[in-house]
Write a protein that binds this DNA or RNA. Structure first.
Length: 341
DNA sequence: CATCCGTGGAT
DNA sequence: TATCCAAGGAT
């Protein structure tokens, strides 16, 4: 029979020996974590893998070592540095949040205050409060949902099971070392209690897990099936004039909001004409997968005869591929190959 | 509560 | 190739 009181001690003992070393992390029992670095890493890590975040985190903290310097950064530079990481609303909220925090003289020191800031929801507010301020808030991300669903053998499928999992997780949260405990739960989920083939044989909670006894650990948490992704098509214009190429900033809201992009239409709910007159030549198609649809984008290229009526011309040698979101990098790579040919 | 919002890696 | 999914939040 599981004893809730021993779970945190078991987990913390394991964490003291096996904590992952990460750029934004303070070692177990170590010095106090910097709220700015905790916040920045947590925003980047939302629905994003540790491997993908590492370089972005190092780059951001090198450019902007504190919230004041980030708050003073130009919007376009932050968007360009975020390019490729996805979920661009995070970048816009990041900057809005940094400016509010800088104006207030620092981060709020409790969960409710944190959650009032843009881009900070139930998970992130609890994570910052626990990790940076050592408050016994319960952090519930996808890892914790999975660990708790297995410990308690919760068979209700997600997302309906979420409230129940949160309540169960709250009962496990210790009053001491809540920040280490939160990170330990996530490390356990990421390295031992993994989605497909959990390594129960080396799990520090093997004697505390109901699903393990029932032999259903790998099946939990159950999830309600997702709808199939529809296919969408569209067109992107690679408009050239001399040694320059046309780019535009996308509208702040919606798909790839606020990012630098080639003019395009037909795939994002906006019906736009070509940005100018040209003898457009089809050079190929790029495929891209978004969260809720598959995209096949026809790429056409041409020399502008008039216009453009929007966007701005950028010299090829000034075009930074890394400042483009992933989809537009594919468009650019195709166009660059065509130009070279 | 459902939908929208990226990207890349693992299986 | 198809599917899942990764430290979620806003609307």
């Amino acid at each position: 029979m599981r004893d809730n009181k021993v779970i945190a001690p078991h987990l913390l003992d394991w964490y003291d020996r096996h904590a992952r070393v990460l750029p934004w992390r303070v070692p177990p029992g170590g010095a106090k974590a910097d709220p700015y670095r905790v916040w920045l890493s947590e925003i980047m890590l939302q629905q994003t893998t540790v491997a993908a975040v590492k370089d972005y985190f190092l780059r951001f903290t090198a450019l902007w070592p504190d919230v004041g310097s980030l708050a003073a950064a130009p919007d376009q530079q932050v968007m360009a540095e975020w390019a490729g990481l996805g979920y661009y609303a995070r970048a816009r909220n990041l900057l809005a949040c940094a400016r509010m925090v800088a104006a207030a003289g620092g981060f709020p020191k409790d969960r409710n205050g944190l959650q009032a800031l843009p881009g900070i929801g139930p998970y992130t507010s609890a994570a910052i409060a626990a990790i940076a301020y050592d408050q016994p808030e319960t952090v519930v991300d996808g890892n914790v949902e999975r660990v708790v669903a297995r410990l308690h053998a919760v068979e209700t499928p997600l997302p309906a099971a979420k409230p129940e999992l949160v309540a169960l997780a709250e009962r496990l949260t210790p009053d001491t070392r809540p920040g280490d405990y939160a990170q330990a739960m996530m490390d356990l989920g990421a390295t031992i209690c993994t989605p497909r083939s959990p390594a129960c044989g080396i799990c520090p909670l093997i004697d505390d897990c109901d699903a393990r006894v029932m032999g259903i650990a790998a099946e939990l948490p159950r999830k309600t099936p997702k709808a199939a992704k529809p296919d969408r098509i569209g067109i992107a214009w690679v408009a050239r004039r001399g040694d320059s190429i046309l780019l535009e900033e996308r509208p702040a809201k919606g798909l790839l909001g606020g990012t630098l992009a080639f003019p395009s239409a037909g795939w994002d709910g906006r019906d736009m004409p070509p940005p100018g007159s040209a003898d457009w030549q089809e050079i190929g198609h790029v495929r891209h997968v978004f969260t809720h649809f598959n995209l096949s984008l026809m790429v056409v290229m041409g020399d502008l005869q008039d216009g453009p009526d929007r966007g701005h011309l950028v010299r090829l040698r000034d075009l930074d591929r890394n400042a483009l979101p992933g989809l537009m990098r594919k468009v650019w790579d195709m166009a660059r190959a065509e130009i070279a040919a």
